[in-house]
Design a protein around this nucleic acid. Structure first.
Length: 595
RNA sequence: GGUUCCGUAGCUCAGUUGGAUAGAGCAACAGCCUUCUAAGCUGUGGGUCGAGCGUUCGAGUCGCUCCGGAAUCACCA
């Protein structure tokens, strides 16, 4: 529609003023609610070429368009704004087009398609997932769907930080205090089970350190010198040396954690195409660093540690290998990136990682380029803000960490209570009820997190934040369920006319408002992909649902006596349902048939 | 201190490449179910867009300065 207007206006300017207008002079936007019209041309930029007042220019162009373009049925001019009205008949035709297009809004990979690797989640294997991971997973998964829907090939990946001192701590604690217990023997999820030993380690370590402090050490020394810490370090060395017993223990405990993670991922509805493990990639990283050192891109200090000098790029020198030759975090990320490039030859690689690691990714990108990997230009750090509680940051020490599994369960339970209170879901089996409540609870959680601009820090109040009314996931799900209910009833009662009996129907104002929004969907998806913003999709869905609910309130669909109008409204409802379903899909939210 | 990000209604957030009188939801108050799902719809009140200066026909949006908050600057990840 906009391109139609754009070419029309260009033509108008050429005919009227004999000048070919630059594209950026043609500012077309949606007309604001308080004015009449569908699209607005801002004429100020054109007055230079028209050499007339804004009002006159607007009138002349408006007149031209109304006359020459069938779809434009009228115009009005307010100050320097030309408001164009699209004829209801044209909107009717647009609806028919969108309705006939089964894949409406989504693109298949074509010539322009990029291969995009997207990494998200990236857990450590010493703790269960928490609220911060939830934001990460939801953002990453939603982005992967959005980028895919915009016509790209997407590979979802995860890097599991399965090696390092943190997992050794859990291993030590389990060896010393575990008495052979397992997740099965305790009836616990494996990630929580292992996480508890990590916490136990820290607790015992603190006790030992306290003793050392009383005998004269500084707190830092005490922590480093405590017997438990030394044991953990020894264990890490044994692991790196490939000691079979250590490796076996490591594998066993990690496998417990993975089983636990799988449950959480499934509950969140998140999945991956390829999972990488740091234990596999850090060695590749080390090799790359050593080779790059030989090629003279890096510096070796006297103590044997290897550094990259980024002072020319206004960053610091950064460590890539410790003096004892072991890898640091950066080392494995270098290796992972190279392995992934070899695996997929991606055009772009998106890292969904919190903004606390901005510096890390600046260094990573620059380091790879410095080492001669040109494709590193395609690396992009999707940096999102922290999730905070009303009291501030989540702190594991203060026990304020919101556990992912607990939260999901609470959301589902709350949805159950709401359904009960509202008297919904009568006549459904317990299984069906549970499933719908799960969908709604998760819908509320996911929408709440995805509707806010990713780069902003957000506050999450476990008690009050999650609502089921207003600008929420359940509101959109509810609108969808309502539509499904109407369509189902139409089928059952046979009012739906399968023939294309909508001729002569001229949509009313409310219907046009809905059609206009449906029409936007085509642009919203690529825009969200370009901006990497699930929030755009979320807020769009909200607008559409709200607009539809007004229409639904004001007009009867099945009760409409004129057959063509009834069919027209059924189509409008059907398409709205489909678009909402797709929008929710892009957010990773399920659309319940009933609620 | 250096770098990066954020500051919009009591609270949580929208606000397109700069465009018209800055919008939603929650909370508060007042209405609407004999009719397709009231998890809905309608209305009322609520603002120095952190502050100031500048660019522009036009600034919540761009630039500079300041104020407030966050992150980061480890042989941690």
């Amino acid at each position: 529609m906009e391109t139609l207007l754009r070419t029309g206006i260009k033509e108008a300017v050429r005919t009227l003023y004999g000048v070919v207008a630059d594209d950026d002079l043609l500012q077309i936007q949606k007309t604001r609610k308080e004015f009449e019209g569908d699209f607005t041309l801002v004429v100020f930029p054109l007055t230079k070429t028209s050499r007339r007042s804004p009002e006159q220019t607007a009138r002349e162009i408006g007149e031209y368009l109304t006359e020459k373009i069938d779809a434009v049925s009228g115009y009005n001019v307010i100050r320097g704004f030309l408001n164009l009205t699209i004829s209801p008949e044209e909107w009717g035709r647009r609806l028919a087009e969108m309705h006939a297009d089964t894949g409406y809004g989504f693109s298949q990979p074509g010539q322009e398609a990029e291969t995009v690797v997207i990494e998200f989640s990236s857990p450590n294997t010493n703790k269960p997932l928490h609220l911060g991971h939830i934001r990460n997973n939801l953002l990453g998964f939603s982005l992967s769907r959005i980028i895919g829907a915009a016509g790209n090939r997407v590979i979802r990946t995860n890097i599991v930080n399965d090696r390092g001192i943190h997992i050794c701590k859990s291993m030590i604690a389990w060896q010393k205090y575990g008495n052979g217990r397992t997740p099965v023997s305790e009836g616990m999820k494996g990630d929580h089970f292992v996480g508890d030993y990590y916490v136990l380690f820290e607790k015992k370590l603190k006790e030992q350190a306290a003793d050392l402090v009383t005998s004269g050490s500084t707190p830092e020394e005490a922590r480093e010198n405590a017997p438990l810490m030394q044991e953990a370090r020894r264990l890490l060395l044994k692991w790196e040396a490939g000691d079979p017993e250590t490796v076996n223990l490591w594998q066993m405990m990690n496998s417990w954690v993975y089983e636990g993670f799988d449950v959480t991922y499934r509950a969140l509805g998140v999945e991956f195409d390829k999972i990488y493990y740091e234990s596999d990639t850090y060695k590749v990283g080390r090799d790359i660093v050593l080779r790059s050192l030989e090629q003279g891109h890096l510096i070796r200090r006297e103590d044997g540690s290897v550094w990259i000098d980024l002072t020319a790029d206004r960053l610091d020198q950064k460590l890539l290998l410790r003096s004892d030759g072991t890898a640091v975090y950066m080392t494995q990320d270098l290796g992972t990136a190279v392995i992934r490039y070899n695996d997929y030859h991606f055009d772009r690689h998106i890292y969904v990682v919190g903004n606390e690691q901005n510096y890390h990714f600046q260094v990573l990108t620059l380091a790879l380029q410095r080492m001669g990997f040109d494709w590193a230009r395609g690396l992009h750090h999707f940096s999102y803000g922290m999730v905070e509680l009303p009291e501030g940051r989540m702190k594991s020490r203060e026990g304020t960490v919101v556990d992912a599994d607990d939260l999901i369960e609470e959301m589902t339970a709350t949805a159950g209570v709401m359904s009960q209170e509202l008297g919904k879901l009568g006549g459904y089996s317990q299984d069906e009820k549970d499933n719908i409540c799960r969908q709604i609870g998760l819908g509320a959680l996911k929408y709440f997190i995805l509707k806010v601009d990713p780069k902003k820090n957000m506050t999450f109040n476990p008690r009050e934040s999650i609502d089921f009314n207003g600008n929420t996931g359940p509101f959109i799900q509810y609108t969808y369920a309502r539509i499904r209910s109407v369509l189902k009833k139409a089928e059952e009662t046979g009012v739906a006319d399968t023939a294309d009996a909508v001729e002569g129907v001229i949509p009313n104002t409310k219907e046009i408002s809905v059609i206009r929004l449906l029409h936007d969907f085509r642009q919203i998806v690529p825009e969200a992909a370009r901006e990497l913003s699930p929030a755009l999709i979320a807020n769009y869905c909200y607008d559409l649902a709200r607009e539809f609910n007004q229409f639904y309130h004001d007009y009867s669909i099945l009760g409409e006596e004129v057959k063509n109008i009834r069919n027209f409204r059924l189509r409008l409802s059907e398409l709205t349902g489909k678009v909402l379903e797709k929008g929710l899909y892009l957010l990773g939210i399920e659309a319940p048939e009933r609620m």
